[in-house]
């Protein structure tokens, strides 16, 4: 994806695919909520998350990228910093 994205767009796209793919309520996705627990991510579910990021934002996540992502706010910032 070549166009510059705003933080609002990143949040909107992210929340949309999380709700659709991980079957969670939008209301449960709060900036300070923990990603892993909220999405109930299993060790293999992360594969799905990596593929989704790749397809929606057009970049490949690296192993070290997950370090430091605890909350959805962390997650949004990580994505935003890669696509801004």
């Amino acid at each position: 994806m070549n166009t510059v994205m705003t933080m609002d767009e990143v949040v909107s796209i992210t929340n949309k695919f999380l709700v659709e793919e991980f079957e969670v309520e939008l209301s449960s996705i709060q900036p300070d909520a923990p990603v892993k627990e909220t999405l109930e991510l299993d060790s293999l579910d992360y594969v799905d998350l990596v593929v989704l990021i790749d397809s929606h934002f057009g970049f490949k996540v690296q192993q070290q990228d997950f370090k430091g992502i605890i909350t959805f706010q962390d997650f949004y910032y990580f994505l935003y910093n890669r696509v801004k």
Binding site: S43, L44, V47, V50, Q62, Q63, F66
Partner: peptide, 13 residues
Amino acid sequence: AIKQDLSHIFEIK
């Protein structure tokens, strides 16, 4: 190997 460091995700992908 399924590991804490999530390296398996990238190998599976």
